[in-house]
Structures are given as structure tokens and as C-alpha cells.
């Protein structure tokens, strides 16, 4: 199978779908939280700031998955683990305090507003990273 490849070990095969979905989610989270911060920041400042942070981390994860070498590999792990912890912790908190985390942020109710993709994606991301671990060269 001929492939235009930039040399990244992660941006191949099914990983490309993962990266594309990350890119869409990054776009959605950044645009939406930007709108929320601009128009209704006061109703839930913590949640909307976290949503914006999540968006930035999704952007970083997308870039890290596309990147080459062990440094980007570590960045990819860091961002994806961060997302996973974020969606689990905020998802759990939103069940207890609906006012602090309204339904329209990316991590509330385990990402229900985004079809639970924010919950599933980091798991797939971690599996993918495990599979594409770069060789430990000196």
C-alpha cells in the first residue's frame, strides 16, 4: 500500500482516522468554548475555562500524534492521559454539581454533549500509542 508519509510512526493506517477525529474535536471544543467565554462566561466560569483548556489540549494532542520521534510520542501520551483524567473527573463532578459544570461543556457528563467521543477517544488514543511505541534507539 503506497503511502505519503512524513516519517511519523503514528500518522499511519487507522491512526489517521484517530487524528482526523481529534482535529474535528479540537476545532469544535475551541470554537464552542470561545463562544461561551465571549457570551456567557459568568454563568459557569470554571467550566468554560476548563472547556477552553480541553480544546487547547486537543489541538496539542492532534499535533503530537502527527509529530515524529520520541518527544512528540511523550507529548501525545501526556495530552491524552490529561484528557482521559479530565473527562473522568469532570464527568463525575458534573453528576454531583450540575451548576458548576453545565451540560454544554466538552467534558460534562463524560462528554455526553459530544456523543461520548471525549470519553472514548483517549482510550483509543492510548491503545494506539501503545501499539506504535517508537523503538528505543540511542
Amino acid at each position: 500500500m503506497p503511502m505519503a508519509n512524513n516519517g511519523s510512526s503514528r500518522a499511519v493506517g487507522a491512526g489517521r482516522v484517530l487524528i482526523a477525529v481529534y482535529a474535528i474535536l479540537a476545532l469544535a471544543a475551541v470554537a464552542r468554548s470561545g463562544f461561551q467565554i465571549a457570551t456567557k462566561f459568568d454563568t459557569a466560569p470554571v467550566a468554560y475555562l476548563l472547556s477552553a483548556l480541553a480544546g487547547v489540549v486537543y489541538v496539542l494532542a492532534t499535533i503530537a500524534l502527527l509529530g515524529r520521534g520520541t518527544t512528540w510520542y511523550r507529548v501525545a501520551w501526556g495530552t491524552i492521559v490529561f484528557e482521559f483524567i479530565g473527562v473522568v473527573v469532570v464527568g463525575a463532578l458534573s453528576l454531583f454539581d450540575a451548576a458548576l459544570f453545565p451540560a454544554d461543556t466538552v467534558w460534562s457528563y463524560f462528554g455526553r454533549g459530544y456523543g461520548f467521543i471525549p470519553l472514548v477517544l483517549p482510550v483509543l488514543g492510548m491503545l494506539w500509542l501503545r501499539k506504535t511505541r517508537p523503538p528505543r534507539a540511542a
Partner: peptide, 12 residues
């Protein structure tokens, strides 16, 4: 990128 996964991306 003319591979099967690009078709999946179109769908996504």
C-alpha cells in the same frame, strides 16, 4: 492520501 482510512475519514 489515497488509502482506505481516508475513506473512513470522509465518513467521519
Amino acid at each position: 492520501e489515497r488509502t482506505r482510512w481516508s475513506t473512513v475519514i470522509l465518513g467521519a
